[in-house]
Design a binder for these strands. Structure first.
Length: 709
RNA sequence: GCGCGAUUAGCUCAGUUGGUAGAGCAACCCGUUUACACCGGGUAGGCCGCAGGUUCGAGUCCUGCAUCGCGCACCA
């Protein structure tokens, strides 16, 4: 017996060399798998953001996907798992901006676009290397030869092709609309990048002026200097007679011309039943304004300050302006009521700034517009709905299908332009009134490219096929697409999963994946999200791997966690599974000592109990119940094989006949060998390490052994 | 406001089509002549959130409620 089994299992000494051996074998690459691997099975890795380091959520994702891939590889599939990273435009840029301000006291404009981008690229590159290292440490059997980056050259071609195609289909348009403006990040963001925070605030009821006939209510009095109308319900008996009239008022030093309009969007039961319409700073109001041809007056600028011609609040920050207007209303006897209320404040996901709705010229994707392609006419929304409704795509756990449909029903056009520098620059060039949309700048002088960049999710939306070579019709694309499983956190169902379905349906007329497996969040033991701001609650995957091994870390993230459920994780749990690796190690010591000199003979049978367990485990994996599969194997190995079979073998090996002894040795060997195969997808390192010493003739690496069912 | 999830042993969670309540960890007791103390053997611990209903039988199905968590919408 190999002397290594005389000491406890040491994951730290073992894992790196095993990973190296796997890399050298080439088996991560489907093209280098043995001939029996024919049917393709594909997963693309949700590309981690190059914003820093991986956390336990990423570790869970890697563990789950690697289990799927290893299982299918052993089953004989031609498995491809594609790695990559995401440039994560806003997230990465704001991280670098924060560092820049902290360390050098500078802002991005102090450096200029080119120099700033150089800094971001350096940071992204460093993050990338950290991430790749972490992905490897987890034991991921991923094909590094196909690694991609959302902002590399090939993906840039894909992004520009996608943009031009959708522009030509009339789905991408430039429009002047109310958008979500982040005054801190100095950019627009999409509806999905907004985080709502519940805050206490006041709702004020007042009149613009003494002679104005209708009272209105608002939580944002400072915006009222931009009002151009008051909307009431057309059938509201109180106000009906005013509809169509105009009133000129002096409101806090601003000259307002207020038209009374009738609009069914107004709920007569709510507040005073009359809405002060501020077309420039509320999208609902903008819709009302559009229906009644009302003028739009912007009164708040990009820095969340009051603009010129706003009377007494000119130049003030919005918060100061609010106080000043309230004071003015009180002084002039116009205030009727002040009530406490709670309201949902929109804040920017990345910067935390309060969102200021502003009218701006931006690029959008039309989700409700019919377009014709390949003889079919439909909308992007319909594409997204059909893919799931028709069961072409199955979402697990199933309840998320309802969440998905609910989101689509409320979906508005997707604002895709960002006023940040890091990302795919919009492939549109202008010269006077001429506009060119294409892959490259048009020939000729004086063409200027659009300054904006694309929402990072635009490039992520192409991920399943941009990684496989699209827009070129590569062999990879025809072999491995649509992919089999998209495994990701439920928190990015809208951001990413839905957008991939949209993009793939629109550009390739197919689905990006057949199954969506959503995992939950990894929480600390108190049930709170692990965060960098609270390092004491944060468990770092690399630390855990160093202390207890990647295998233990993987099991701790799998067992006790069904799809879509959040997982509370503690270090004790990981430690417990480290003990399991060692148990397996000691089982091996016993078996190899007992069966010294034996070679496993072909046709040796395992017990019926193990066969039944393996059948169950296989069904569980096929049905995405990894937590059950892993637990059953753990239980069998420890409490059946070790506790019972090994114990009852001792008297047989000591006192049995020669035939009984030999049969028992063969039985121990076959049970261990079979368990190693079944456990391999879950705990690949320790099983591969033990495998080296299994007395089997014509042995392959465990990673490509056949699944034992 | 609409919706989703959770509620089972001290803790973390299983419990697939209804058929005598389960695991891991923690606790307590015992055990160290060898596979393993990163261990073994054992013990204790549960009105399965509450109230109704269906059923011979409900943790499981139905209705209502409560608490916690989450998503979406509204935010005049």
């Amino acid at each position: 017996m190999n002397e290594k089994f005389l000491k406890p299992y040491n994951s730290a000494e073992t894992e790196d060399s095993i990973y190296k051996a796997w890399l050298e074998s080439g088996y991560f690459n489907p093209d280098k798998l043995p001939d029996r691997h024919k049917t393709p099975y594909t997963i693309v890795l949700p590309p981690p953001n190059v914003t820093g380091t991986l956390h336990m959520g990423h570790a869970a994702m890697l563990a789950i996907e690697d289990i799927f891939i290893r299982y299918k590889r052993m089953k004989g599939y031609k498995t491809l798992w594609v790695p990559g990273t995401d440039h994560a435009a806003i997230a990465t840029q704001s991280k670098v901006e924060k560092d820049l301000e902290k360390k050098e006291g500078k802002r991005r404009h102090d450096l200029g676009r080119e120099e700033f981008l150089k800094r971001v690229n350096d940071f992204a590159l460093a993050s990338h290397d950290t991430i790749v290292n972490q992905v490897k440490k987890m034991g991921s059997s991923i094909d590094w030869s196909r690694e991609a980056f959302t902002l590399d050259e090939k993906r840039t071609v894909a992004v520009r092709t996608a943009f031009k195609t959708m522009y030509d289909l009339g789905l991408i348009y430039r429009g002047h609309r109310i958008v979500n403006w982040d005054p801190k990040g100095q950019t627009t963001i999409s509806d999905d990048e907004i985080v709502y925070e519940e805050r206490k605030s006041k709702i004020y009821t007042f009149k613009y002026a003494k002679n104005f006939p209708i009272s209105i209510a608002t939580t944002r009095p400072e915006t009222k200097v931009g009002d151009t109308a008051v909307a009431v319900h057309p059938e509201d008996a109180r106000y009906k007679r005013f509809i169509g009239k105009n009133f000129d008022v002096d409101f806090a030093g601003a000259r307002l011309s207020i038209k009374i309009v009738g609009d069914t969007a107004v709920d007569p039961e709510y507040g005073t039943g009359a809405v002060g319409v501020t077309p420039a700073h509320s999208s609902i109001d903008a819709e009302i304004a559009a229906r009644h041809n009302l003028p739009t007056i912007q009164v708040i600028n990009e820095y969340a300050k009051m603009m010129p011609k706003t009377g007494i609040v000119e130049g003030l920050k919005v918060a100061e302006a609010r106080e000043k207007i309230v004071a003015w209303l009180n002084e002039n006897g116009l205030m009727e009521k002040e009530e406490e209320t709670t309201q949902n404040i929109s804040t920017a996901e990345r910067t935390g700034a309060v969102i200021e709705p502003l009218p701006k010229l931006q690029w959008f994707i039309a989700v409700n517009k019919k377009f014709a392609k390949n003889g079919k006419e439909r909308t992007l929304k319909e594409i997204m709905i059909e893919a799931v409704e028709s069961k072409q795509i199955k979402i697990m756990p199933e309840q998320f299908e309802r969440v998905y449909f609910n989101w689509i029903n409320n979906l508005r056009d997707w604002c895709i332009s960002r006023q940040i520098w890091y990302g795919h620059r919009i492939p549109v060039w202008y010269k006077g009134d001429e506009v060119h949309v294409g892959l490259e700048a048009p020939k000729g002088e004086d063409w200027k490219q659009d300054e904006d960049t694309l929402d990072t999710w635009f490039s992520s939306g192409l991920w399943t096929f941009s990684t496989l070579g699209w827009p070129e019709q590569t062999p990879d694309l025809s072999t491995f697409h649509p992919t089999d499983v998209l495994e990701t956190g439920y928190d990015i169902l809208f951001f990413w999963v839905a957008r991939m379905i949209l993009m793939t349906g629109c550009l390739l007329d197919t689905i990006p994946f057949k199954n969506v497996y959503l995992h939950g969040l990894v929480l600390d033991k108190k049930g709170k999200k692990m965060s960098k701001s609270k390092p004491e609650s944060n468990i770092d995957p690399l630390d855990m791997i160093a202390k207890y091994g990647a295998d233990a870390t993987r099991l701790s993230l799998i067992i006790g966690n069904a799809a879509g459920n959040d997982l509370k994780l503690s270090e004790d749990k990981i430690k417990g599974y480290r003990n399991f690796s060692n148990k397996l190690w000691n089982i091996t010591r016993f078996v190899l000592t007992s069966a010294e000199g034996e070679t496993l003979e072909e046709g040796t049978e395992v017990s019926k109990e193990l066969k039944d367990t393996l059948a169950d485990v296989t069904t569980d994996i096929e049905n995405y119940r990894l937590y059950l599969a892993a637990e059953k194997l753990y239980h069998y190995a420890w409490h059946e094989f070790a506790d019972k079979i090994l114990e009852e073998s001792k008297p047989i090996l000591a006192n049995g006949s020669d035939a009984e002894k030999k049969a028992r040795k063969q039985f121990l060997l076959v049970t261990l060998v079979t368990l190693l195969k079944a456990l391999h997808p879950f705990i690949p390192y320790v099983t591969e390490e033990i495998w080296k010493d299994m007395p089997i003739s014509d042995k392959k690496m465990l990673i490509i052994e056949e699944w034992p069912v």
